[in-house]
Design a protein around this nucleic acid. Structure first.
Lengths: 198, 198
DNA sequence: TGTACATCAGTGAACGCGCGTTCACTGATGTAC
DNA sequence: TGTACATCAGTGAACGCGCGTTCACTGATGTAC
């Protein structure tokens, strides 16, 4: 209860200086994008949601495009983190971990729709295409002994399948849980590849 | 060159009455959506593109949402037509026709991006989910002897794969042609399913 | 410990713009006689 | 064939609104002395 570092209730302290408006604006943008789509949110709305004047955001972002770009970049990081955590170096066994990968993708789209939509918004910067070598998916395929050209095409097919399922689920076009479809889809792709080789 | 039915050059005839403004607005909307995204076009732009005043569109569409909704509905029809033509009752042989199905989906997204984007725009009406029995994809799977639950899941997986590939291609994230990926992806899914059964 | 000052995150008024939509209107078209 | 009239697809001026952004400003914070 000493004065330094904590000169009163946070609320009072934030009466003027918000404290972390930069992050608060990103959070607000994410939830507004989730509600109304990437083009359906405005700087004013974001500012209002943070309890701040309309011009305050410009102390933190050059313009609206800069805010959306940072939202997308953050979305890329969050997705990568989820994927890496899901793969978890293939523990306890690669097959189990592989299934978690797909679920992580779906969970990201579901639980952080604002970041997800910002990341894949039409017209967004192409985002750095994930490096197959360091991406969790690339590592997972390596752990399965899939290498060379097949690894590349399979990784893209799994990515497209996940992305397509997340997208169709978002628009309410899936008559069954996406999890089941991604599990069996990935299994079929892997088994199909194995059948090719023999 | 008789007068009736053709009372002069079309240009002169359209000096005042446009003739087919309804369709012209849809075409204009499609190309504007293709350029700037589903939210990036305005009624004014569409009217301008048709050489018509800002208020003219309201003689043909109740409001902007109605125009976009009709664009999406038309997109659904166009996609269905392309798919049906690609399948062509499985001629000359089902495997060849099956590959054409995937290509048709990609071609639609590529050649009619306005309709494609309107159809899958976030927030668009869910669109009537395609009836598996009458959809070209459903017929194709039936021709392959895939029936029951497997047909349902496989159809959704192929759809998601196609949709994901089209989507990733649109955002420039595919390092190789989508056609190759969909061909081998569908083949792997089919072969993987076959391996399940045995 | 106390004071002076630089810094900088906020305010709030104001701007110009483009958009969706309306409204009373007008000119062209097609039909009934 | 010619004329009168109903219909209706267009015009163009106007509206209210919300948005992105700017600007001069002000109040809080933290640091140097």
């Amino acid at each position: 209860m000493a004065q330094p570092e904590n000169p009163g209730p946070a609320a009072a302290r934030r009466a003027y200086h918000h404290g972390n408006l930069h992050q608060a604006l990103l959070d607000a943008a994410a939830s507004l994008v989730a509600e109304r789509g990437p083009e359906g949110f405005s700087m004013l709305d974001a500012a209002k949601a943070c309890g701040v004047s309309a011009s305050a955001p410009y102390k933190h972002f050059a313009d609206k495009a800069a805010l959306l770009a940072e939202l997308a970049a953050l979305g890329g990081q969050k997705l990568h983190q989820r994927m890496a955590a899901a793969w978890d170096s293939g523990r306890p066994e690669p097959p189990k971990a592989f299934l978690r990968l797909g679920h992580a993708y779906l969970a990201f789209a579901r639980e952080e729709p604002g970041y997800y939509l910002a990341l894949f918004r039409p017209g967004a910067a192409p985002a750095t295409p994930p490096d197959p070598a360091t991406s969790p998916l690339g590592q997972a395929l390596a752990a399965f002994g899939v290498a060379g050209g097949a690894a590349g095409t399979l990784a893209l097919q799994i990515w497209a399948l996940s992305h397509g399922l997340a997208s169709l689920e978002r628009s309410g076009q899936l008559p069954m849980p996406a999890e089941a479809l991604i599990d069996s889809g990935v299994a079929r792709l892997l088994r199909g590849l194995a059948a090719e080789k023999s």
